[in-house]
Design a protein around this nucleic acid. Sequence first.
DNA 1: ACATTTAACATACGAAGCGTATGTATACTA
DNA 2: TAGTATACATACGCTTCGTATGTTAAATGT
Lengths: 196, 196
Amino acid sequence: MNQRAKTMAENRAKLISAARKAFAEKGFAASSMDDLTADVGLTRGALYHNFGDKRGLLAAVVEQIDSEMAARAHQAGAKAADDWQGLLTEGTVYIELALDPEVQRIVLLDGPAVLGDPSQWPSQSNCLQSTKLTVERLIAQGTLKQIDAEAAARLISGAALNAALWVAASTTPKEVLPKAIVAFQALATGLLKTPA
Amino acid sequence: MNQRAKTMAENRAKLISAARKAFAEKGFAASSMDDLTADVGLTRGALYHNFGDKRGLLAAVVEQIDSEMAARAHQAGAKAADDWQGLLTEGTVYIELALDPEVQRIVLLDGPAVLGDPSQWPSQSNCLQSTKLTVERLIAQGTLKQIDAEAAARLISGAALNAALWVAASTTPKEVLPKAIVAFQALATGLLKTPA
DNA sequence: ACATTTAACATACGAAGCGTATGTATACTA
DNA sequence: TAGTATACATACGCTTCGTATGTTAAATGT
C-alpha cells in the first residue's frame, strides 16, 4: 500500500471512529463537523474530500455498524440447533444489539431519518438480508407458512428493533428486556405452519 | 373567547398546518422557520412565542397527527366483530396509515429522531395506548397468551409500522401491501393461546 | 371614557454551522 | 530531480437558529 493511501485510510478510520462517538452521544444534527474533525487533528477539508458531505460520513458510519451487527447476528444464529431456533436467537440478538446506544441513535433513529429507508441503503441492510435468507430456507423446509419472505423478515426484525427501543427508553431495562424477548418469541410462532 | 385568544389560536393553527406541509415535504431539518412563518404571513417571533423553539413546533405537529391516527385506528377497530378481529384490523390500519407521507416522514422518521422515543412523548402515543388496552382485554378474556401487554402492543405496532415503511419505500406499493398485511396477520396469530 | 398595563408578535442582532472555492505541501511519476 | 497530482488546510459567503429588544393592539381598572 502507498504512503498516501495508507494515511488516507487512517484518516478515514479516525473520522469514522470520531463520528461514531459524536453521533451516538449528541446525535447527527447536533454534531459539529468542525469539532469532530478537530478532535482527530484534521479539518473539514479532509471530511469533504473523503465523504463528500456530512451525510456521506453518516452513511459510512452506518455501513460499518450495520456490518458489525450482521456479523454478530449471523454468528449467534449459526450456533443454534436448527434454522427455526436460529431465527429466534437472531431476533433476540437484534433486541440486545439495539440496546447499544450507538446502534440505537445512529442506525435506528438518525439513520432512517437522514438517509431514508434502510432497505434503500447501499449496504442494503446486511442485517435484514440475513434473516430474509433464513426465512426463505424455513419456508422451503415447510416449517413456516408460505408467506412473502421479505415481508416476514421485515416484520420480524421490525418488531425486534421496536421492542429494543422500548427497552432502552425504559427506566428499568433489565426488568423489561425479558418481557420483550418472551413477547417476541410468542409473536414469531405465528409464522410457524404448525405452532409448537 | 377573547379576541386575543382567538387570533392566537388561529395563528397556532396556521403554523401547525404549514409545518405539516413543510416537514412532510422537506423533512424537519431542511425546513426553514423563516420560510415557514412567512408562508402564513407571520415571522419567527410568533413561532418562538407559541412553541418555544423549532422542536416545540414539531412536537405540536406530531401530537396533532398522532391523535388523528388514534381516532382512525380506534374507529376501524370498533367496527370489528370481536376484540381479536379488532386487533387485527387495527394493525392493518396502522400499515395503511403509515403509507401517508405525512405520517411517515413526521411521525415515524423525524419524530423519533428529534423528540426521542414515542412512548416518552407528552401525547404518550395515543395510537399505541389504544392497542395496549385491546391486548389487555384479550389477555383477560383468555384469548391471548399471558404476556406483557405493553410488550405485545409494542411489537405488534412496531411490526406494522415497519412493514408500512417497507411498503412505502417500495417501487410497487400496491403489490407489496397485501403481502405485508398477510404476513402481519400471520405473525399476530402467534399471540393467540390457541392458534386459529 | 381614558390611562395603564399586558402580551402577542415583529425587528434586530449575534453566533454557529455547512458547503465551496481556492491555496499549499507532500507524496508519486517520469 | 523537476513536474504533477492530490490529500488536506484555509478562507469565504450563505443560511439558519435562538434571543434580546422594540412595538402595537387588546384587555383591565378606575
